[in-house]
Write a protein that binds this DNA or RNA. Structure first.
Length: 423
RNA sequence: GUGGGAUUAGCUAAGUUGGUUAUAGCGCCAGGUUGUGGCCCUGGAGGCCAUCGGUUCAACUCCGAUAUCUCACCCCA
């Protein structure tokens, strides 16, 4: 017997109803905000990610699924969405469209990781990208969309924002940070000692209690912003205030992808385990040029839909949310005898054409077994059709929710007049 | 990549200090007189007890390895 690959999941019919709901909310929210869907390959030339996401990131260094074609060209299964979208924007000249260019995507992504709650090797992500708008209003619009999707799904997540500066002010901040941590070098954990030279920003993220305590008093990125970045951040805050979107400023938010500039943010859920970032993103003003495109700023986020599903299930367990279910048939027709089967098939087909979910027996079950089955699948009404009914042209339409409630209907009207399927 | 926990039927679990045909509930299928669901009763199907190796007269039970799941670190959505 075959097993699915490690770290992948089978999403079974019971759960796909939840996914349909999520996709419905995503499509509605993006449509109302003018984001249009883009569908791009699930794999790209490796360089797209190596150059886009950054050579030194964990994602590129140890989490990519790579494959080679017969000519030896190296590809990667997409580990994230932004780099591929940027590649497509450049390759298709979408930067010539009216600005801002607003896009969204939805689909599977792949990272070679050790699986745990909220982290798998194949996971689904919804993301948006907005190009050509460098104002803080654009940041707020992107954040507001993430906020709306989360709220429309009945979830709560706290929004954390930060600014990590731009190529002008970030080096100065790095120096200040390095100076500070150097004075505590002996106390830092092993990994953080290494981080000191390579990427001191990451020490802020360390979960070790000692490093974390030291980091508490570290210089904050928002105290070292240049005038431009500072104004941008202040404007973002006041815009979020006026939109009544709650947030907290978290100087520890440090994203692991090299392309981020200025605004970074995360929506964090407390309904799931340690992998609690349900949506994360930020501004990436240098990325398009980094991938050989024109000068074009951008901002976006990725939303981990697998984690959204986890959060919804967790909420449902606490009784705070009702999970979407697959639909039940309005009518189940229980035929008896060959003439009944013909009637049942014709009527069910006609009802389906009219957009009504109807079922009938196709396994030759006894009447009793059919009733049990109709009950199990949650049919609202049942119509028993045998020779007697066919001869008279009439049958009893039974309301499954109420034992004493049934009405006589004319058989040839069941498919024609759907109003009889509600009483 | 580093740790901890787990693996017995489709699902949730029991299985005595190693000892004959490996259990239960739920679910599935079929019945409980001629044409009616939920409750109840009866029967049936369904397991190489994760895999491989070792100890033993004898292993679901003890030991080792592998795989997978799971939780955390790391990292991220």
């Amino acid at each position: 017997m075959f097993q699915k690959p490690k770290g992948t999941v089978d999403i079974l019919p019971e759960e796909t109803a939840i996914w349909h709901k999520i996709e419905e909310v995503v499509r509605e929210c993006t449509k109302n905000a003018g984001f249009r869907e883009i569908r791009i390959p699930t794999f790209e030339l490796s360089g797209v990610y190596k150059r886009g996401v950054g050579d030194t990131t964990d994602i590129v260094q140890k989490e990519m699924f790579t494959l080679n074609d017969r000519e030896g060209t190296e590809f990667c299964l997409r580990p994230e969405g932004t780099a591929g979208v940027v590649r497509s924007v450049i390759e298709n000249g979408l930067f010539n469209e009216p600005m801002p260019l607003k896009l969204y995507y939805l689909g599977p992504f792949f990272r070679y990781e050790k699986p745990q709650a909220g982290r798998s090797r194949e996971f689904y992500q919804f993301g948006i990208e907005m190009f050509g708008a460098e104002t803080a209003s654009a940041d707020a619009e992107v954040i507001a969309l993430g906020d709306r999707v989360i709220k429309k799904l009945g979830l709560r997540a706290s929004l954390n924002i930060n600014s990590i500066g731009c190529p002008d002010c970030r080096p100065k901040y790095h120096d200040a940070l390095r100076d500070y941590f150097k004075s505590h070098e002996n106390e830092l954990c092993g990994t953080c000692k290494e981080r000191l030279e390579k990427n001191p920003l990451r020490i802020l993220d360390c979960k070790s209690p000692i490093c974390s305590a030291i980091a508490d008093n570290a210089p904050k990125t928002i105290d070292h912003l240049c005038d431009d970045c500072n104004t941008h951040f202040e404007t973002l805050k006041s815009t979020l205030d006026s939109l009544e979107i709650e947030y907290s400023i978290n100087p520890r938010i440090v994203r692991g992808l090299d392309y981020y500039r200025k605004t970074v943010f995360e929506f964090i859920s407390d309904d799931i385990g340690a992998q609690s970032t349900v949506c994360g993103g930020g501004r990436y003003d240098g990325l398009v040029q980094q991938l050989d495109g024109p000068e074009l700023c951008g901002i976006g986020f990725g939303m981990g839909l697998t984690r959204i599903v986890l959060a919804m299930k967790s909420k449902a367990e606490k009784g705070e949310l009702e999970l979407p279910k697959n639909p039940s048939p309005v009518l189940y027709i229980a035929p008896m005898g060959d003439r009944g089967v013909v009637y049942a098939m014709k009527t069910v087909t006609a009802l389906r054409e009219r957009g009504i979910y109807a079922e009938c027996d196709v396994v030759k079950r006894s009447l009793k077994a059919q009733m049990k089955y109709a009950d199990k699948i949650g049919a609202k009404y049942v119509l028993v059709v045998g020779d007697n009914e066919l001869d008279e042209g009439k049958a009893m339409l039974k309301n499954m929710a109420d034992r004493d409630d049934s009405r006589q209907v004319e058989l040839d009207k069941v498919a024609a007049d759907t109003s009889i399927l509600s009483f």
